[in-house]
């Protein structure tokens, strides 16, 4: 059986918020090492991968691997009903058809138990090869969210160029054009590692959706390489991550 307790429901709320705009149904695979989830969006343009190692949890027990087919909209409704500082325990039997969520208030005076019906999902899993990225940029996640929002006012396509001098985001549309450049800073809040300069185009709508994960981490890592999808990674409390992959736009 599975029993996993998070000290604060706030973390689960943030994770669900980071997933539900991209995917509506997904399987959460639980094993003794933690929880994993991987899904593509309906149009097969982006993929989200979530990993939570046991260190994310106050208590974690999973005797046998269990796959939980989740409707994220339903999970979101349940999680919204709890207070952020409640603790939450997820539990499921070995061949479960439901997930139990038990919320407990700080002073233990209020408990709330929910049963969520599980779905039998037949999901494709993709193998993501290890990639030696040409450019790796780390910046404050709020800065990345702001740039993605500002770019999307100008065009649905955002061009990202990365050189040793910095990373540049550009958008060209009916309104005009926008260019935002960031250089590496000495205090280390922006780091730019470039093996080889790169310029690629991406759909701004997806980049914007990825920034729903901003509350999970102060920092975001952006990795680019020729001919491979963009990787946008938010770490989760030292023991996990949410990674978004986005296929580039290519010239016709």
């Amino acid at each position: 059986m599975l029993e996993a307790r998070l000290g604060e429901t706030q973390l689960l709320k943030k994770i669900v918020d980071a997933l539900k705009e991209i995917i509506s149904l997904s399987t959460l695979d639980c094993s003794e090492t933690g929880m994993q989830l991987q899904s593509m969006d309906n149009s097969h343009v982006s993929l989200v991968s979530l990993s939570l190692q046991t260190g994310c949890f106050e208590k974690y027990r999973c005797d046998r691997n269990v796959s939980l087919g989740l409707d994220l909209k339903s999970l979101s409704k349940v999680v919204k009903s709890a207070s952020g500082d409640d603790s939450v325990t997820l539990s499921a039997a070995d061949k479960a058809d439901k997930l139990l969520l038990s919320f407990e208030s700080d002073n233990k005076s209020r408990t709330a138990d929910y049963e969520l019906k599980l779905l039998n999902l037949d999901q494709d899993h993709l193998g993501i090869p290890d990639t030696n990225y040409a450019c790796t940029v780390q910046m404050p996640s709020s800065e990345f969210a702001r740039i993605c929002r500002d770019m999307s006012m100008f065009s649905e396509t955002v061009v990202i160029s990365c050189t040793k001098q910095g990373i540049k985001f550009s958008a060209n549309g009916d309104l005009g054009s926008a260019n935002i450049k960031l250089a590496e800073t000495s205090k280390g809040d922006i780091t730019i590692d470039v093996e080889e300069p790169i310029t690629q185009s991406f759909a701004g709508r997806y980049l914007n959706t990825f920034t729903r994960a901003t509350p999970l981490s102060d920092r975001v890592k952006i990795c680019l390489a020729p001919e491979v999808p963009l990787l946008v990674e938010y770490s989760i409390e030292d023991y996990g991550y949410i990674r978004y992959y986005l296929a580039p736009k290519v010239d016709d």
């Binding site: 593509m40 097969h44 193998g127 396509t157 491979v228 992959y245 296929a247 736009k249 290519v250």
Partner: peptide, 14 residues
């Protein structure tokens, strides 16, 4: 205008 590539062009099914 650039066209959107499909992610499955890059990652294989396992």
């Amino acid at each position: 205008t650039p066209i959107q590539n499909d992610l499955t062009e890059y990652f294989s099914l396992v």
